[in-house]
Design a binder for these strands. Structure first.
Lengths: 133, 133
DNA sequence: GGCTAGTTGAGAATGATTGTCAATCCCGGT
DNA sequence: ACCGGGATTGACAATCATTCTCAACTAGCC
Protein backbone atom coordinates (compact mmCIF):
# COMPACT_ATOMS: atom_id res chain seq x y z
CA UNK A 1 0.00 0.00 0.00
CA UNK A 2 1.20 3.45 -0.89
CA UNK A 3 4.91 3.51 -1.46
CA UNK A 4 3.70 6.48 -3.47
CA UNK A 5 5.69 9.08 -1.61
CA UNK A 6 3.93 12.35 -2.24
CA UNK A 7 6.05 14.60 -4.41
CA UNK A 8 8.24 17.04 -2.49
CA UNK A 9 9.31 20.11 -4.35
CA UNK A 10 12.71 21.65 -3.86
CA UNK A 11 12.21 25.03 -2.29
CA UNK A 12 14.52 27.51 -0.62
CA UNK A 13 12.81 26.81 2.70
CA UNK A 14 13.16 23.05 2.49
CA UNK A 15 16.82 23.34 1.61
CA UNK A 16 17.43 25.77 4.44
CA UNK A 17 15.89 23.42 7.01
CA UNK A 18 17.94 20.52 5.69
CA UNK A 19 21.09 22.64 5.79
CA UNK A 20 20.54 23.40 9.47
CA UNK A 21 19.86 19.77 10.24
CA UNK A 22 23.02 18.72 8.46
CA UNK A 23 25.11 21.23 10.39
CA UNK A 24 23.73 20.34 13.80
CA UNK A 25 24.84 17.15 15.42
CA UNK A 26 22.39 17.32 18.29
CA UNK A 27 18.70 16.84 18.78
CA UNK A 28 17.01 20.21 18.44
CA UNK A 29 13.46 21.41 18.84
CA UNK A 30 11.50 22.87 15.96
CA UNK A 31 11.58 26.22 17.70
CA UNK A 32 15.36 26.11 18.00
CA UNK A 33 15.74 25.20 14.36
CA UNK A 34 13.48 28.09 13.45
CA UNK A 35 15.58 30.47 15.56
CA UNK A 36 18.76 29.22 13.94
CA UNK A 37 17.28 29.85 10.51
CA UNK A 38 16.45 33.41 11.46
CA UNK A 39 19.95 33.91 12.85
CA UNK A 40 21.37 32.78 9.53
CA UNK A 41 19.27 35.37 7.82
CA UNK A 42 17.62 32.52 5.95
CA UNK A 43 14.30 33.02 7.62
CA UNK A 44 11.56 30.45 7.21
CA UNK A 45 8.05 30.63 8.62
CA UNK A 46 7.49 28.63 11.78
CA UNK A 47 4.59 26.74 10.23
CA UNK A 48 6.84 25.73 7.39
CA UNK A 49 9.52 24.50 9.74
CA UNK A 50 6.99 22.24 11.44
CA UNK A 51 5.56 21.08 8.13
CA UNK A 52 8.98 20.34 6.69
CA UNK A 53 10.12 18.45 9.76
CA UNK A 54 6.96 16.35 9.74
CA UNK A 55 7.55 15.50 6.10
CA UNK A 56 11.15 14.54 6.80
CA UNK A 57 10.05 12.31 9.65
CA UNK A 58 7.43 10.69 7.46
CA UNK A 59 10.12 10.01 4.87
CA UNK A 60 12.38 8.56 7.57
CA UNK A 61 15.01 11.18 6.88
CA UNK A 62 14.92 12.54 10.42
CA UNK A 63 14.68 10.95 13.85
CA UNK A 64 12.54 12.30 16.65
CA UNK A 65 12.83 12.17 20.38
CA UNK A 66 10.34 13.17 23.05
CA UNK A 67 11.86 15.17 25.87
CA UNK A 68 10.61 14.81 29.43
CA UNK A 69 8.55 17.97 29.11
CA UNK A 70 6.84 16.67 25.99
CA UNK A 71 8.66 18.81 23.47
CA UNK A 72 9.69 17.02 20.29
CA UNK A 73 13.33 17.07 19.21
CA UNK A 74 14.63 16.42 15.72
CA UNK A 75 17.94 15.18 14.38
CA UNK A 76 19.35 13.90 11.13
CA UNK A 77 20.58 10.37 11.79
CA UNK A 78 23.18 8.33 9.99
CA UNK A 79 22.16 4.77 10.74
CA UNK A 80 19.75 3.42 8.18
CA UNK A 81 18.21 0.93 10.52
CA UNK A 82 16.29 1.15 13.76
CA UNK A 83 18.49 2.36 16.61
CA UNK A 84 18.41 4.17 19.92
CA UNK A 85 20.11 7.22 21.38
CA UNK A 86 22.37 8.06 24.25
CA UNK A 87 21.77 11.76 24.76
CA UNK A 88 23.54 14.31 26.96
CA UNK A 89 21.02 16.21 29.03
CA UNK A 90 23.01 19.45 29.04
CA UNK A 91 24.56 19.78 25.59
CA UNK A 92 22.45 17.37 23.55
CA UNK A 93 25.43 15.44 22.21
CA UNK A 94 24.11 12.17 20.84
CA UNK A 95 25.50 8.71 20.31
CA UNK A 96 23.56 6.29 18.15
CA UNK A 97 23.46 2.84 19.70
CA UNK A 98 22.14 -0.56 18.76
CA UNK A 99 20.25 -2.75 21.17
CA UNK A 100 19.49 -5.99 19.36
CA UNK A 101 19.01 -7.83 22.65
CA UNK A 102 16.48 -5.28 23.77
CA UNK A 103 14.48 -5.61 20.58
CA UNK A 104 14.11 -9.35 20.86
CA UNK A 105 13.46 -9.15 24.58
CA UNK A 106 10.66 -6.64 24.04
CA UNK A 107 9.10 -8.67 21.24
CA UNK A 108 9.23 -11.93 23.17
CA UNK A 109 7.80 -10.31 26.26
CA UNK A 110 4.96 -8.77 24.32
CA UNK A 111 4.20 -12.07 22.63
CA UNK A 112 4.10 -13.86 25.99
CA UNK A 113 1.39 -11.47 27.09
CA UNK A 114 -0.59 -11.85 23.89
CA UNK A 115 0.30 -8.48 22.38
CA UNK A 116 0.96 -7.95 18.69
CA UNK A 117 1.89 -4.98 16.50
CA UNK A 118 4.61 -4.25 18.99
CA UNK A 119 6.76 -1.15 19.00
CA UNK A 120 8.86 0.40 21.69
CA UNK A 121 10.69 3.52 22.70
CA UNK A 122 14.05 3.45 24.42
CA UNK A 123 16.26 6.44 25.04
CA UNK A 124 19.12 6.84 27.43
CA UNK A 125 19.89 10.18 29.02
CA UNK A 126 23.00 11.19 30.91
CA UNK A 127 25.74 13.78 31.15
CA UNK A 128 28.63 13.53 28.75
CA UNK A 129 32.30 13.94 29.62
CA UNK A 130 32.54 17.50 28.36
CA UNK A 131 29.63 18.60 30.51
CA UNK A 132 31.08 17.41 33.82
CA UNK A 133 31.60 20.29 36.23
CA UNK B 1 19.66 16.40 51.05
CA UNK B 2 16.04 16.78 51.85
CA UNK B 3 14.35 13.53 52.74
CA UNK B 4 12.11 16.09 54.37
CA UNK B 5 9.03 15.27 52.37
CA UNK B 6 6.81 18.31 52.59
CA UNK B 7 3.72 17.52 54.60
CA UNK B 8 0.70 16.53 52.52
CA UNK B 9 -2.61 17.25 54.12
CA UNK B 10 -5.58 14.99 53.66
CA UNK B 11 -8.20 16.87 51.73
CA UNK B 12 -11.38 15.86 49.95
CA UNK B 13 -9.75 16.69 46.63
CA UNK B 14 -6.64 14.63 47.26
CA UNK B 15 -8.70 11.65 48.33
CA UNK B 16 -10.94 11.98 45.29
CA UNK B 17 -7.98 11.93 42.91
CA UNK B 18 -6.51 8.91 44.67
CA UNK B 19 -9.87 7.14 44.54
CA UNK B 20 -10.05 7.57 40.78
CA UNK B 21 -6.48 6.37 40.35
CA UNK B 22 -7.20 3.31 42.44
CA UNK B 23 -10.26 2.44 40.39
CA UNK B 24 -8.59 2.83 37.03
CA UNK B 25 -6.19 0.17 35.87
CA UNK B 26 -4.97 2.09 32.83
CA UNK B 27 -2.79 5.06 32.15
CA UNK B 28 -4.95 8.16 32.01
CA UNK B 29 -4.29 11.80 31.25
CA UNK B 30 -4.81 14.54 33.82
CA UNK B 31 -7.69 15.86 31.73
CA UNK B 32 -9.38 12.45 31.69
CA UNK B 33 -8.99 12.11 35.43
CA UNK B 34 -10.50 15.55 35.87
CA UNK B 35 -13.43 14.61 33.65
CA UNK B 36 -13.97 11.40 35.60
CA UNK B 37 -14.03 13.37 38.85
CA UNK B 38 -16.69 15.68 37.46
CA UNK B 39 -18.73 12.70 36.25
CA UNK B 40 -18.63 11.27 39.75
CA UNK B 41 -19.98 14.53 41.05
CA UNK B 42 -16.83 14.81 43.08
CA UNK B 43 -15.55 17.80 41.19
CA UNK B 44 -12.02 19.04 41.70
CA UNK B 45 -10.40 22.04 40.06
CA UNK B 46 -8.20 21.26 37.10
CA UNK B 47 -5.21 23.05 38.65
CA UNK B 48 -5.61 20.91 41.72
CA UNK B 49 -5.68 17.73 39.67
CA UNK B 50 -2.38 18.69 38.08
CA UNK B 51 -0.89 19.74 41.38
CA UNK B 52 -1.98 16.57 43.12
CA UNK B 53 -0.69 14.35 40.35
CA UNK B 54 2.68 16.12 40.40
CA UNK B 55 2.90 15.60 44.15
CA UNK B 56 2.04 11.93 43.79
CA UNK B 57 4.70 11.52 41.13
CA UNK B 58 7.24 13.29 43.32
CA UNK B 59 6.36 10.91 46.14
CA UNK B 60 6.73 7.93 43.78
CA UNK B 61 3.13 6.97 44.33
CA UNK B 62 2.22 7.30 40.69
CA UNK B 63 3.96 6.40 37.45
CA UNK B 64 3.97 8.57 34.37
CA UNK B 65 4.21 7.83 30.71
CA UNK B 66 4.69 10.19 27.79
CA UNK B 67 2.40 9.48 24.87
CA UNK B 68 3.57 10.01 21.29
CA UNK B 69 1.74 13.32 21.12
CA UNK B 70 3.50 14.56 24.25
CA UNK B 71 0.57 14.26 26.63
CA UNK B 72 1.45 12.88 30.04
CA UNK B 73 -0.41 9.84 31.34
CA UNK B 74 -0.67 8.78 34.98
CA UNK B 75 -1.26 5.45 36.68
CA UNK B 76 -1.02 4.00 40.14
CA UNK B 77 1.55 1.22 40.03
CA UNK B 78 2.02 -1.78 42.27
CA UNK B 79 5.69 -2.57 41.92
CA UNK B 80 7.79 -0.76 44.49
CA UNK B 81 10.90 -0.76 42.36
CA UNK B 82 11.81 0.66 38.98
CA UNK B 83 9.99 -1.11 36.19
CA UNK B 84 8.67 -0.64 32.66
CA UNK B 85 5.31 -0.99 30.95
CA UNK B 86 3.76 -2.99 28.19
CA UNK B 87 0.81 -0.89 27.16
CA UNK B 88 -2.08 -1.64 24.80
CA UNK B 89 -2.45 1.16 22.30
CA UNK B 90 -6.22 0.82 22.01
CA UNK B 91 -7.49 0.09 25.50
CA UNK B 92 -4.57 1.17 27.64
CA UNK B 93 -4.33 -2.14 29.49
CA UNK B 94 -0.95 -2.25 31.16
CA UNK B 95 1.44 -4.97 32.24
CA UNK B 96 4.29 -4.06 34.53
CA UNK B 97 7.53 -5.69 33.46
CA UNK B 98 11.06 -5.91 34.72
CA UNK B 99 14.07 -5.52 32.50
CA UNK B 100 17.14 -6.04 34.65
CA UNK B 101 19.28 -6.85 31.61
CA UNK B 102 18.25 -3.62 29.95
CA UNK B 103 19.18 -1.58 33.00
CA UNK B 104 22.70 -2.93 33.19
CA UNK B 105 23.12 -2.76 29.43
CA UNK B 106 22.11 0.90 29.42
CA UNK B 107 24.39 1.76 32.32
CA UNK B 108 27.39 -0.04 30.87
CA UNK B 109 26.85 1.52 27.47
CA UNK B 110 26.60 4.99 28.96
CA UNK B 111 29.76 4.43 31.01
CA UNK B 112 31.66 3.28 27.94
CA UNK B 113 30.86 6.59 26.29
CA UNK B 114 31.84 8.61 29.33
CA UNK B 115 28.32 9.51 30.44
CA UNK B 116 27.24 9.65 34.08
CA UNK B 117 24.01 10.44 35.91
CA UNK B 118 22.34 8.00 33.60
CA UNK B 119 18.60 7.46 33.34
CA UNK B 120 16.49 5.92 30.64
CA UNK B 121 12.99 5.56 29.36
CA UNK B 122 11.65 2.33 27.96
CA UNK B 123 8.06 1.61 27.13
CA UNK B 124 6.58 -1.09 24.95
CA UNK B 125 3.39 -0.50 23.00
CA UNK B 126 1.25 -3.06 21.27
CA UNK B 127 -2.27 -4.40 20.89
CA UNK B 128 -3.54 -6.74 23.56
CA UNK B 129 -5.50 -9.93 22.96
CA UNK B 130 -8.87 -8.40 23.75
CA UNK B 131 -8.35 -5.64 21.24
CA UNK B 132 -7.68 -7.91 18.26
CA UNK B 133 -10.29 -7.43 15.55
C1' DG C 1 5.69 33.13 -21.18
C1' DG C 2 1.77 31.05 -18.77
C1' DC C 3 -0.69 27.04 -15.92
C1' DT C 4 -1.56 24.79 -11.96
C1' DA C 5 -1.01 22.20 -8.09
C1' DG C 6 2.23 22.06 -4.32
C1' DT C 7 4.07 25.38 -0.95
C1' DT C 8 4.47 29.28 2.03
C1' DG C 9 3.63 32.38 6.10
C1' DA C 10 1.25 35.62 9.17
C1' DG C 11 -1.77 35.12 12.40
C1' DA C 12 -5.54 32.77 14.66
C1' DA C 13 -6.84 28.62 17.01
C1' DT C 14 -6.07 24.63 19.86
C1' DG C 15 -4.92 22.15 23.86
C1' DA C 16 -2.11 20.75 27.64
C1' DT C 17 0.07 22.57 31.41
C1' DT C 18 1.50 26.20 34.73
C1' DG C 19 1.06 30.60 37.29
C1' DT C 20 -1.73 33.93 40.19
C1' DC C 21 -3.71 35.07 44.38
C1' DA C 22 -7.55 35.80 47.34
C1' DA C 23 -10.68 32.76 49.74
C1' DT C 24 -10.90 28.52 52.22
C1' DC C 25 -9.69 24.50 54.92
C1' DC C 26 -6.81 21.15 57.77
C1' DC C 27 -4.85 20.34 62.10
C1' DG C 28 -1.97 20.89 66.15
C1' DG C 29 -2.21 23.52 70.14
C1' DT C 30 -5.27 25.27 73.70
C1' DA D 1 -14.97 22.60 70.78
C1' DC D 2 -12.26 26.87 69.42
C1' DC D 3 -8.22 29.29 67.23
C1' DG D 4 -4.61 30.67 64.15
C1' DG D 5 -1.72 30.25 60.50
C1' DG D 6 0.28 27.90 56.97
C1' DA D 7 -1.07 24.54 53.39
C1' DT D 8 -4.49 24.00 49.84
C1' DT D 9 -7.89 25.20 46.56
C1' DG D 10 -9.98 26.99 42.22
C1' DA D 11 -11.51 30.28 38.77
C1' DC D 12 -9.10 32.41 35.45
C1' DA D 13 -5.22 34.23 33.04
C1' DA D 14 -0.93 33.16 30.96
C1' DT D 15 2.41 30.29 28.58
C1' DC D 16 4.06 27.43 25.04
C1' DA D 17 4.41 24.04 21.52
C1' DT D 18 2.01 22.71 17.74
C1' DT D 19 -1.70 22.85 14.20
C1' DC D 20 -4.97 25.20 11.25
C1' DT D 21 -6.54 28.69 7.78
C1' DC D 22 -6.36 30.60 3.50
C1' DA D 23 -4.87 34.00 0.34
C1' DA D 24 -0.58 34.91 -1.98
C1' DC D 25 3.33 32.76 -4.10
C1' DT D 26 6.33 29.58 -6.92
C1' DA D 27 8.57 25.30 -8.78
C1' DG D 28 8.32 22.45 -12.50
C1' DC D 29 6.24 21.45 -16.86
C1' DC D 30 3.93 22.76 -21.54
Amino acid sequence: MSGTEPVRRTTRQRSAVLAVLDDLEQFRSAQEIHTELVRRGDSVGLSTVYRTLSALVADDDVDTLLRDDGETLYRRCHGETHHHHLVCRSCGATVEVDGPAVETWADRLAAEHGFDEVSHTLEIFGRCEKCRV
